[in-house]
Amino acid sequence: MTATAAPGVTVAPARRARQARRRAAGLGLLAWVAGITFALPVAWMALTSLHSEPDAATNPPSLGAALTLDGYRAFFDSGGGMGPWPSLINSATASLVSTLLVLCLALPAAYALSIRPVRKWTDVMFFFLSTKMLPVVAGLLPIYLFAKNAGLLDNIWLLVILYTSMNLPIAVWMLQSFLADVPVSIIEAAQVDGAGLPTVLSRIVAPIAGPGIAATSLICFIFSWNEMLFARVLTGVTAQTAPVFLTGFVTSQGLFLAQLCAASVVVSLPVLAAGFAAQDKLVQGLSLGAVK
């Protein structure tokens, strides 16, 4: 007795499984190609930083050139003998402090817009989003005049305030989606036990939405660390940040490519280290906000 396919069934389960495996393999290969494509310029920059200036300037580039640390030595010896450390410290201060301020302000706001929504909360969210529609350069002149009259030029704390205001809208948007997945029953149970708002935020909401908070913190830190327009216009020597320090390697004498690549590698290391350390939290946080 032979088995016959049911009417209307055109694809066997085994065939569908093979097709699914082929699609998965194709998507995996595409992901590898995309990842290598994005990582190749970074790897090339790191390799160029280990070449001498003549070898780095050759066209086409020489893969077999001798490796040297002269570019890194020149980078750490620049800056009038102090090296890049003041600029790196300024960038770290502005990025870390502004990220902490953003979290302190965005977490209660996201709580009010998600777990305890206010009236017309969608209008509030749109207002936050609309603040990101204005080009940064459009507000540069008023901010410069205000900083000049207030005596805040070349002050790192002015950058802290600006970075906080710049990152706050995106942080509220991200945290609102993360906190929307927090079970309200747990919060209500804690409130019945007498927990106030600070306790609920610190001991209930923050641990549950930890991956989302970590993802938001990392993105705000990266945005603050990479910002250069305000830092270039509003700072001089005292509050100079690392991205502004990098521009010093493009001089009228020419482009010192090996030194510039070495400086770029060093300046990129804090962001890469933070992303690598928080990669599991970042993936969990972005998945938490995307999957409903």
Rank of each mutant, 00 (worst) to 15 (best):
A112R: 03
I115S: 04
I115M: 05
V118E: 09
V118A: 10
W121M: 14
W121L: 14
T122Y: 13
F126K: 05
F126I: 06
F126N: 12
F127E: 11
T131E: 15
L134T: 05
L134P: 03
V136M: 13
V136R: 09
V137I: 15
A138Q: 10
A138N: 11
G139M: 02
L140K: 04
L140H: 02
L141Y: 04
I143T: 12
I143L: 14
A147W: 06
A147H: 01
K148R: 15
K148I: 14
N149R: 13
G151C: 12
D154S: 13
D154E: 10
N155W: 02
I156S: 08
L159S: 00
I161A: 14
I161F: 04
I161V: 08
I161K: 08
T164C: 06
S165Q: 07
L168P: 02
L168C: 09
A171H: 03
V172F: 05
V172T: 05
V172D: 11
Q176W: 00
S177H: 09
F178E: 01
F178V: 07
L179V: 08
L179D: 00
D181A: 08
V182E: 02
V182Y: 03
P183F: 04
P183H: 03
V184S: 13
V184N: 11
I186W: 08
I187L: 12
E188S: 06
E188V: 14
A189V: 10
A189W: 01
Q191M: 14
V192A: 15
V192H: 14
V192E: 10
D193H: 07
G194F: 07
G194I: 10
G194V: 11
G194R: 02
A195V: 11
G196Y: 01
L197V: 14
T199F: 07
T199I: 15
L201F: 01
L201P: 01
S202D: 08
S202W: 10
S202F: 07
R203N: 05
I204A: 12
I204Q: 06
V205R: 05
A206Q: 04
P207Q: 13
P207E: 14
I208K: 02
A209Q: 05
A209E: 02
G212P: 00
G212M: 00
I213E: 06
I213K: 01
A215R: 00
A215S: 08
A215P: 04
